[in-house]
Design a protein around this nucleic acid. Structure first.
Lengths: 254, 254
DNA sequence: TTTCCGATAATTACTCCGACATATTACAGG
DNA sequence: CCTGTAATATGTCGGAGTAATTATCGGAAA
């Protein structure tokens, strides 16, 4: 992000244009404001305990109506990022109150320079949850699930992970595993985390060759699930998560 | 138009009073609306695909201004429950888009008669995550963490789980374990799920004696963490989750 | 005639504005 | 130290106008 431009008096204007510029089709104004403020909070630009300027002042600074600004604040409030009270103003809540697993919050966290420690935390969580999901999938998958996984695997082989189609197939594969668990809570959790993490690795690896061919590892996971081998599926998926971790780690280090 | 005209004959009024009645101190009007609509969606009163009445109509039906209604809708949108588009209206999104791990969404889900399958899913997730958390805690805890756990354990012994103080100590104990993991993602995840689940069991067990004394199991977890025994901590915590599951299951069945 | 495409119209959410009500904090006086 | 009062920022309201999306209708091409 090119935030380091210290032009003094035009900054308000830049911020305002920035807010309105992001406003594409399907993206409302209040959504753009929420996006902007959310990223500002997640990036540490506003820190826990800080109190934002008053509604009228901030809305005017952003060059939007008070209604739009307020609706944006409601979004942030719903995600546990801020809290508004009469006379006290709107303040950023402590990090423990943030809904860090909310897909949008994750997107904001990964929009700028994601906090290394947080990425490690997420991978640790993945390393806990995804093997367990594979274990459940091995116990509960039906023929339809296996077919979807098999097709996704074939598509991955065909396109490789360097293409959009290949990455889409990768997502399909993992989603099929999740669906096979039949656990909704597991599905939403893993889906949002995986999406957020892959989101960064994906476009950071543009100039980077993958550490090694990930297809065989995916095949191992599939075989174990197809064979109804829970422990094998969990182990194989553990390897896969570890692989993704190394990939991301090297991408962020370099 | 004066707001205090309680003309009687409409059922709309009843709904409106219902919405306004929940409005306690610290609870804004739009928050109450969001609460009401959120529970209605989670309870299946509005099903995925349904489109809500238009802003003007619905706001008038609830006897609130469009601003308050819209802000409530923004909250629901932020949690992935609904989606609004011009000309198309506001429709309830498919369940897979809901942020089921959002604390408020969980609260709404457990406000009425919680879906049995969903409760099972959550416990399955707990059974995956919490033992892993205990394992990490056994590896990373410091003296301060152990002290907090010890104190909480003593308080649990003193008050028993039948009292508010005792349950607070129970929460403190589990929170101390989470804190000891040092993983923020793990913390928010487990904290919200645990809170929601305990929320039901807590006030359903008013007339029910606990299946068995849970203190010794807690002690086992603590001892393993204090001893730096990851596998032992994970196993002991697994027992604890299983115990909670049985408790909840019998509470919901009876 | 059928099918497809583009212009048009209607509906709905979206945005803005200005005013008032309410809650919470801070201060002054007892 | 406590209590009542005033200041202030959020909360709520109603209405007007804008923008975007969908549905409809008409015409042209197959």
């Amino acid at each position: 992000m090119t935030r380091s431009a210290p032009s003094s008096d035009k900054e308000d204007l830049a911020a305002a244009e920035g807010a309105r510029a992001v406003r594409g089709p399907g993206r409302r104004l209040h959504g753009a404001i929420a996006h902007k403020l959310g990223m500002a909070i997640l990036s540490g630009q506003y820190q826990p305990g800080d109190t934002l300027s008053g509604e009228v002042a901030f809305a005017e600074e952003l060059d939007v109506s008070r209604s739009a600004y307020r609706e944006a604040i409601q979004v942030l409030t719903a995600k546990g990022l801020v809290e508004s009270r009469p006379k006290a103003g709107t303040r950023v809540l402590p990090r423990t109150r943030w809904n860090l697993l909310d897909p949008e919050v994750l997107a904001w966290a990964f929009a700028g320079e994601p906090d290394i420690q947080f990425v490690r935390d997420l991978f640790e969580l993945r390393a806990i949850v995804e093997p367990a999901a594979a274990r459940l999938a091995a116990q509960r998958r039906d023929k339809e699930d296996l077919k979807v996984m098999k097709d996704a695997l074939a598509a991955m082989r065909r396109h490789t992970l360097a293409t959009d189609a290949g990455r889409a197939a990768d997502r399909d594969f993992h989603n099929a595993i999740l669906k096979a668990t039949g656990n909704d809570a597991l599905i939403v959790l893993t889906a949002s985390i995986g999406a957020a993490v892959n989101w960064t690795t994906q476009y950071k690896q543009r100039a980077r060759a993958l550490p090694r061919n990930p297809i065989p590892d995916h095949v191992r996971v599939f075989d174990a699930i197809a064979a109804g081998d829970p422990q094998g599926a969990a182990d194989a998926m553990g390897v896969l998560v570890q692989l993704a971790l190394e990939d991301t780690a090297s991408a962020m280090a370099g």
